[in-house]
């Protein structure tokens, strides 16, 4: 098993005729994802690498049975695209777009709650269930199927972690980037809940960042988990009050610091990797111990 995406995922690509949309639609397809449709208003009837393009999500869903969407449309139009997907009844929406105004996301998340759709992102690398499907921009080849779940606020730090895991022979069940913005559709706690229920997942890696309090909320959930969680929080050396790239990565008050977050995660029973280069090793130690039991 895995979470969010698998062999049954029928993927729709919003913004498929753009540079990134068409590039990654094809990479997802090559990885084995069933990419059934694309949407670009005004481009219906055309094709991208054999994928039919529609004017609206509603039509694309009706004709292809798409049940997940990945969004590449520019920031100014992304909120509209996410809500269009939810309105068409798509249960899983992955938004890659970076730079969406925060207040747009207030409206979006409010609407998605009404529609019962799940949003991953925005400003995220997406989701991959190695060997099964991919709705994301991560390089498929660094992953391998296995039993470690990965959830992260950062894209490239996730790649770094996955590469460490794969090099140590530790495959992954699903890797999810939840995104680096102040408001994202899914939280660490939401993903931990799914990993806890997923039979294929034996341990979870959580990669946090400075800013906000999502890691502290995750810690509350970790207290109830039976699976081991290995955590790292980036930004221990970041200065307060400065936005470190991600709109959500800004320390304001002590609850936003890496130190405070790591302390909360540790107190909840998570194992903290001593440095970002040692995340893989820490997982290996935990799973090694588990298998001896």
């Amino acid at each position: 098993m895995s979470i969010l995406v698998d062999k049954n995922t029928r993927l729709l690509v919003q913004g498929i005729t753009g540079g990134e949309g068409s590039f990654h639609a094809q990479r997802c397809q090559e990885y084995g994802a069933k990419v059934v449709a694309g949407v670009t208003p005004g481009k219906a009837g055309s094709q991208v690498a054999g994928i039919p393009v529609f004017n609206t999500v509603e039509k694309a869903v009706r004709e292809t049975g798409a049940n997940a969407s990945i969004i590449f449309v520019p920031a100014a139009f992304a909120a509209d695209a996410i809500m269009e997907a939810a309105d068409a009844g798509i249960p899983l929406v992955v938004c890659i777009t970076e730079g969406i105004p925060t207040l747009d996301m207030v409206t979006v998340t409010g609407y998605l709650n009404l529609r019962g759709a799940r949003l991953i992102g925005p400003n995220c690398p997406g989701v991959i269930s190695p060997g099964k499907s991919k709705a994301g921009i991560m390089a498929g080849e660094i992953h391998m199927p296995g039993a470690v779940g990965v959830v992260s606020r950062s894209g490239t730090l996730t790649y770094e972690t996955v590469a460490q895991l794969t090099a140590l022979g530790l495959g992954q069940s699903t890797c999810v980037g939840i995104g680096g913005d102040p408001i994202v559709g899914s939280s660490f706690a939401d993903m931990l809940q799914l990993f806890q229920k997923d039979r294929a997942t034996r341990a979870v890696v959580l990669i946090g960042e400075i800013g906000g309090s999502k890691e502290q909320e995750a810690a509350e959930f970790i207290k109830t988990m039976t699976k081991p969680v290995i955590a790292f929080v980036a930004g221990a050396t970041a200065p307060p009050g400065r936005r470190m790239g991600h709109a959500g990565a800004i320390i304001s008050g002590s609850s936003g610091t890496a130190k405070e977050k790591m302390a909360a995660l540790k107190a909840a029973g998570a194992l903290i990797a001593p440095s970002p280069a040692q995340i893989g090793e820490t997982v290996k130690q935990v799973l090694g111990k588990d298998s001896r039991r």
Partner: peptide, 21 residues
Amino acid sequence: VNGAGLAMAVLDQITSAGGRP
């Protein structure tokens, strides 16, 4: 560095190696 999270992690790694970014 590419990526904000990785960039922060690199700063952390430099600091833990005894340097200053």
